[in-house]
Design a protein around this nucleic acid. Structure first.
Length: 793
RNA sequence: GGGCGGCUAGCUCAGCUGGUUAGAGCACUACAAUGACACUGUAGGGGUCACAGGUUCGAGUCCUGUGUCGCCCACCA
């Protein structure tokens, strides 16, 4: 007993150095910050430096590896979904950097038009300010500052998860260099005509989704459907002719035709009643006229194949201006569209004065009351139905007819589909590829203009004003002179448009007085996805304007993002990327699982179930969180935050630390011999097996099977290296004297395998592995920084 | 209405192109007094792989159908 105690006392003294720099528990909070500094200083987040390193070492330089990282919205904190993406992107980036590829992970921030405008407007309101008081310019300036501040915050969090991105090259979607490229795309697509002679980008008047709260037009994809309670009102539209009335009374039980609607207020804009041509009930009434109650307008009964005989009464009131289906029916039947709801969701237009300015719901109630008094209301049913709402603020959408800018996505979608079919771009999981194909096959024109203040202004100028241009578009064969005659407004311009960032000083076709000429700026902004949809080539073109350099980075290898923006973003990047550059922007698309709250529901501030990555990292360390993503957030899955599992991973991280600590503590006093012996190490049985296992891990990484890579490395390192090999070695060297040749061999073997393992683990868990590597470096057992070490293949 | 995915141990989930007694983490049981680590080690219990057919020498894995839960898309007024 006594001798034992003395022995360990001596060991303690000898190990003081190690014990000091390597405490029993791995302190992730301290070490992670140190490693971030080491990596920053190393310069290896830059592909050029990786390339010169490889050259210097006389190693093969393989193809560049590039990911243009999905830019998070620069208006808040990063959530667990963002850090999930970064974990996967960084794993791929680090692995490629360590296997001979000059690697660029290009970070960015998204101005996120409508969302940021909403967020910042709310912040202003809280401070007692209003965006309307600030005005456009001041609002833009303040919002820009706000985004820059938030971007810095996000950047710090990106570093905290270990992201090895080239931060000096970070891009903001409103960067002037990017704006230039986005504008060029716009000009080119405006000039390019489709087979009907129309520009691929064009201004059009059609039915769009108007959010009355955000006061802007939205693309179809920017809307959601929500189950809401509503009414289904059955209203009688009496026939005009007495004979028809009589016949109707006989056949239909009323002196009119009964229509059923969930939105009675739209009846003021009705221009027909449509029935199915095969509907026997209404056959003899087709072509007859009914009197639209309250509005007192005569409208015809028409037929349309799309009408469902079973729904409601089988007779549909047609409001072309405020219903997408009705808009289509009107087009087919050449019906007039009457606008009765304006951009703010209020009743307007040519309607009885008492309804003007009313909210649609109030108007609906008022109309129902009047119809009841007139005896024209059959009944009201209370129903639940799905209502289209704004994706941002959940306000019900008002379909209205409006002049907007559109992109004819059809040729783009065709090109993107082709790339998918050829396998030039592959989506993982495969099920999502079919979803994307379906989406691309059924795509509608994309409304790219938004009535916002935050974003890129559509670079268009109207000679004579926007109103004149739109009027001429609606009246194709007419002239500005006709415009003056018919509207009574003077036409002070030619009705032409000019493209460009700066205002044109003159219009060569303008015959009038130069000083009279009105040139009006387009005030609409681009949909935020119009710029982010160009992300891979816009960022790389901006950074590498020289074509030779650009081709080194583009097309990129992988797009790694979340499933929920497959249509919003991935589809747009594929369409625009292929069309503009001729090449699909990425070979593989890896869609990680969605991260949900502990209870399996979506995280939201209002529910109070938001878990932020910063808290998890502080508690368990970034490596533990990363490992959890790799094992849990598989493509196609939904994953709920599970702290127990993250905690379990932290135990593993600590295990790596202590195994390394053990090896280092034991070899301190015979270091030189170990270093010497390690140089011409024999391929022992353990080394052979380790190499086989580690090769398996890198194969998993190459095949995107990150869960298997993470699970297997954990299994190997913990249960083979630690539990078996270290324990065996312990027993083997127990009786050997310090400096014994066999002892040195055994310890060298352990160190050798440890280093191999650290390399292969580094892409997944960079902090612990680099921390250990740095310890090895200080005693001379390793050279350089781990992040640039090359994995043998 | 269309499409996609899940259903495997008490819980959360792995299981690539079909191949020996189906795995992990957590939880559970018993043991180990602790000099790398208790954020530990050793051993163990626990599963008719949703159901029904089929293909095959062989199916958790492939095919067909059913049930069930969930997600996405869609113009039922």
């Amino acid at each position: 007993m006594c001798t034992r105690a003395v022995f360990y006392f001596i060991v303690d003294i000898m190990n003081t150095k190690i014990s000091e720099s390597m405490p029993k528990a791995f302190d992730s909070n301290i070490k992670e910050k140190e490693m971030i500094k080491i990596w920053d200083d190393s310069g290896y987040f830059k592909p050029e430096n990786v390339e010169s390193y490889l050259k210097k070492e006389g190693l093969d330089i393989k193809d560049n590896f590039t990911i243009t990282l999905p830019p998070p919205n620069a208006n808040g904190d990063l959530h667990l979904g963002h850090t999930c993406g970064y974990s996967f992107q960084d794993l791929m980036g680090r692995f490629n950097r360590m296997t001979g590829h000059p690697t660029l992970l290009l970070p960015g921030k998204d101005h996120a038009g409508i969302q940021t405008e909403a967020v910042f407007t709310k912040i202003l309101e809280k401070q007692g300010e209003s965006k309307w008081d600030l005005g456009r310019e001041e609002f833009y300036k303040r919002c820009y500052e706000f985004c820059m501040e938030k971007a810095a915050n996000a950047r710090a969090q990106e570093k905290a998860i270990g992201l090895s991105a080239d931060f000096e090259r970070e891009m903001f979607t409103l960067d002037p260099r990017l704006n230039k490229i986005v504008y060029e795309t716009f000009y080119n697509l405006f000039e390019k005509k489709d087979e009907n002679g129309r520009g691929l980008i064009y201004r059009d008047k059609r039915i769009i989704n108007q959010c009355p709260y955000c006061r802007t037009a939205l693309a179809d994809i920017d809307t959601e459907h929500e189950e809401m309670r509503g009414i289904f009102a059955y209203i009688i539209y009496p026939f005009v002719d007495e004979a028809d009335k009589k016949l109707a009374k006989e056949k239909l039980g009323q002196e009119g035709i009964v229509v059923a609607t969930t939105r009675p207020e739209t009846m003021l804009g009705d221009t027909a009643v449509a029935v199915n041509p095969k509907d026997e009930r209404y056959k003899e009434f087709v072509g007859k006229k009914v009197m639209l109650p309250i509005a007192n307008r005569e409208i015809p009964i028409i037929t349309d194949r799309k009408i469902d005989i079973e729904t409601g009464t089988g007779a549909l009131k047609v409001t072309p201006a405020h219903s997408p289906i009705d808009f289509e029916i009107a087009k087919r039947n050449k019906l007039e569209a009457i606008n009765v709801i304006n951009e703010d969701g209020k009743m307007s237009g040519d309607i009885p004065e008492r309804f003007l300015g009313m909210d649609t719901v109030d108007c609906s109630k008022a109309l129902v009351a009047e119809l009841k008094d007139l005896g024209l209301l059959v009944k009201i049913e209370n129903i639940k139905h799905s209502v289209t709402v704004c994706e941002r603020c959940k306000t019900p959408i008002q379909p209205i007819i409006s002049h907007q800018w559109f992109l004819n996505v059809e040729p783009f979608a065709k090109a993107a589909l082709e790339e998918l079919k050829k396998g030039n771009t592959k989506i993982m999981p495969a099920g999502q590829q079919r979803a994307l194909e379906f989406f691309l096959k059924n795509i509608e024109p994309w409304c790219i203009s938004r009535q916002l203040w935050w974003g890129q202004r559509i670079p268009v100028w109207y000679s004579g004003g926007k109103k004149l241009y739109d009027w001429l578009m609606d009246n194709p064969k007419k002239t500005p002179a006709d415009y003056e005659k018919e509207t009574g407004i003077k036409a002070i311009g030619t009705g032409k448009i000019f493209m460009g960032e700066t205002m044109p000083t003159s219009d060569p076709d303008w015959k009038g007085n130069e000083s009279d000429l009105l040139i009006e700026a387009e005030t609409d902004m681009f949909d935020t996805w119009f710029s982010s949809g160009q992300w891979p080539y816009s960022t790389l073109k901006a950074l590498f304007p020289n074509e030779k350099d650009f081709n080194k980075y583009y097309p990129t290898q992988v797009m790694e993002t979340a499933r929920d923006i497959l249509f919003f973003w991935v589809a747009r990047m594929m369409m625009l990327g292929k069309y503009v550059t001729g090449k699909t922007p990425f070979k593989d698309v890896f869609l990680h699982g969605l991260v949900f709250a502990t209870d399996g529901t979506k995280m939201s501030k209002s529910k109070g179930n938001v878990v932020l990555p910063a808290g998890i990292i502080e508690k368990y360390g970034a490596d533990a969180l990363r490992l959890w993503y790799y094992i849990s957030a598989l493509p196609g899955s939904n994953v709920s935050v599970d702290e127990e599992k993250i905690k379990g991973n932290r135990f593993f991280i600590n295990k790596i630390w202590n195994a390394s600590r053990f090896v280092l503590m034991n070899i301190e006093e015979e270091l030189d011999e170990v270093i010497k012996s390690e140089k011409d190490i024999k391929e022992t049985k353990k080394i052979k097996e380790a190499k086989k296992e580690l090769k398996k891990i890198s194969n998993y990484i190459v095949k995107y099977q990150f869960n298997l890579a993470a699970e297997n490395i954990r299994e190997f390192f913990w249960h083979t290296y630690c539990d078996k090999w270290i324990e065996e070695t312990k027993a083997e060297i127990a009786e050997l004297k310090v400096g014994d040749k066999k002892r040195i061999e055994k310890l060298s073997e352990l160190i050798y395998i440890l280093k191999l393992s650290l390399k292969i683990m580094h892409p997944m868990i960079p902090f612990i592995t680099e921390s250990v590597w740095q310890e090895l470096k200080t005693v001379g057992l390793a050279k350089g920084d781990l992040l640039i070490q090359q994995i043998e293949e």
